[in-house]
Design a protein around this nucleic acid. Structure first.
Lengths: 341, 341
DNA sequence: CCCTATTTGACATACGTATGTCAAGTCAAC
DNA sequence: GTTGACTTGACATACGTATGTCAAATAGGG
């Protein structure tokens, strides 16, 4: 039988009320008695029955996901996963809202964050770039008692309670290792594309890539990252130029957002070249490209796992419970046509 | 506000008792009233609060994992994951026991299954080969009201409630695709090893491998599977012979159990050969081999996920709740040194 | 040692559901 | 219209925890 608060009260030789005051950090309890209760908790190995507690409290959790707006396949799949996870955990007394912000505009982000109703809010999952303003806004939210997790993109300099996402440096390394192995005995260069290198994710991935190539596969050379800022023409031109300039072009690494544009350009300009293609993020676009054989492998993070993990972590924080690290570790997945899910 | 049984009673114009009788399938309710209650449930969108229900029932779940005994790194990691998941979900009112059986002896397996206390048992996760005797034992357990999930190894001809594991055919395909891509422009043959081909897992993986090689990489030829039945000498001899006979040996595919022996033999006999090595299952052995660069990639399934999924599915079955498919989908992971976790 | 401020305990009620008891109600058949 | 069988409803208690009220106990200062 698991011990209950009654057992604690008896063991500590105090009343239920006192146990309650200690357990829930209420004031007006003498240190001596507080110690006795804590001792009893330790001795009996008491753990609060969160379900019963939530029942008694009529507790509902109010969580908000802040995601970047604008057309983006990856964000769409993430949002879908959040909605799905929320629906499935409908039994789990959590109200989840998704709000979109213009992530490129720190001012707009902060404005939206400030407009959250801190009175009812229990936690926020934030997928926005880190800026000083955002950092302050996070501090503000936290000081109001809500929890904040960095979501997908880390916010290393902010006072977040957790980061739910992958290590993008390792992701870049993985891409590099994959390319190195796919081009086992070959020498040549690799075209690296990204929609934009302002996001720290892309920068970290690039570092990871370079590190592995330099160390393990010096025969492969990664060209400077091409940023195309949503401009199909730009990537098309660059690709054409690259194939012309670099006769030894062997592979393309698409570092995330903008896969669709990149793949289209590839189809138009490099059809007969037999390039190895590695891309990031599993979206309808990359999924189809895997099936069609246009992409050899995709480096992905499971969006369902991301969403569920963020929800679990926020709940755990609210309940002041421990986090089950093994479950919350988001893995860097390598997806090919054969293990597509 | 979520509707409660009280709301249902009011809406249906019956008493709480009647609602309870209908909801919990007790006898002695006139069809007309049963219908009214069910209607009210539908109209109000009532879902039972499982936590409150479990609290009232003092419900504890009793689950048993049946795993193959004998020295096996993979089973060890699985057992560890089960223990860890159990400990972490200690709050979750489940008692979990792991029992080991001699999986090679169907009679022993059945004997152990028969000795389970069906009176208190709520569910079993079974990781044993399928035999007619096992099939009968499963039917027996189910007729006693407990739930059965096939764990890691599918039991397609038995009346299980669920299968928690990967599709091994796809896993074999994945291995084939990986080998095909790692040996992008090369021609040659692949050594395939397994400790034993009696387990259906190995057979399915082999089929998957062959299918992909034949279709997509005909330049690569997989040699007949070498089974070495825990005999290091056998694999060493075979490897020596293979390297002598097949000058074009390019890769080794280790289909699971016996990775340690295989890797050791490889170290002794094929040190300078620059072979591509793909293995199954992430264990301390393959983990170290990845770090050391002895293995290029490991096809794995996340054992933590396996354990948690089995527990969740069993619980869902007991609660007569739906299964959240997306979460229970076990993925075929490709693990390299860089995305090792 | 008294007074006051603080701390404590006893008790009641609640959360949403389960379950048991018993009296009252309904129904069909005679 | 009565009997007996079946069905229903009212009520009480419980699960483990939270929370509020109020009187009683205690500590500390003078």
């Amino acid at each position: 039988m698991k011990p209950t608060v009654h057992d604690i009260a008896r063991e500590a030789g105090v009343s239920l009320s006192t146990v309650d005051r200690v357990l829930n950090g209420r004031a007006d309890v003498r240190p001596k008695n507080a110690e006795r209760v804590k001792d009893a908790v330790r001795r009996l190995g008491y753990v609060r029955d969160t379900n019963a507690a939530n029942l008694a409290r009529k507790r509902r959790y109010k969580f908000v996901f802040v995601l970047p707006e604008g057309p983006n396949h990856f964000v769409d799949t993430v949002a879908g996963a959040v909605r799905e996870a929320t629906a499935a955990q409908v039994t789990d007394r959590a109200d989840v809202e998704i709000v979109y912000v213009n992530a490129a505009d720190p001012h707009a982000v902060v404005k939206r964050l400030k407009s959250l109703d801190l009175g009812t809010l229990d936690g926020v999952a934030l997928m926005v770039p880190e800026t000083p303003q955002v950092r302050d806004a996070i501090a503000h939210i936290k000081s109001a008692g809500a929890y904040v997790v960095a979501f997908v993109s880390d916010l290393p300099n902010s006072k977040c309670d957790h980061f739910v996402g992958i290590d993008n440096f390792s992701a870049g390394q993985t891409a590099g290792a994959l390319l190195g192995r796919f081009l086992r005995k070959e020498t040549g260069c690799i075209l690296v594309t990204s929609n934009s290198m302002v996001a720290r994710d892309s920068i970290e991935r690039r570092y990871g890539l370079d590190e592995v190539l330099l160390r393990d596969f010096p025969r492969l050379k990664a060209l400077p990252t091409i940023e195309f800022h949503d401009d199909p023409q730009r990537i098309r031109d660059t690709l054409t130029r690259a194939t012309a300039t670099h006769a030894d072009l062997k592979a393309v690494y698409s570092m995330g957002s903008g896969n669709a544009i990149m793949l289209e350009a590839l189809r138009e300009t490099a059809a007969g070249l037999d390039l190895v293609v590695v891309a990031h993020d599993l979206t309808p676009v990359t999924r189809q490209a895997l099936v069609d054989g246009e992409v050899d492998a995709v480096i992905a993070q499971n969006v369902g796992h991301l969403a569920r993990s963020a929800l679990r972590v926020l709940r755990a924080k609210c309940d002041d419970a421990g986090i089950y690290e093994a479950q919350e570790q988001i893995r860097i997945e390598i997806v090919m046509r054969e293990n597509l899910y």
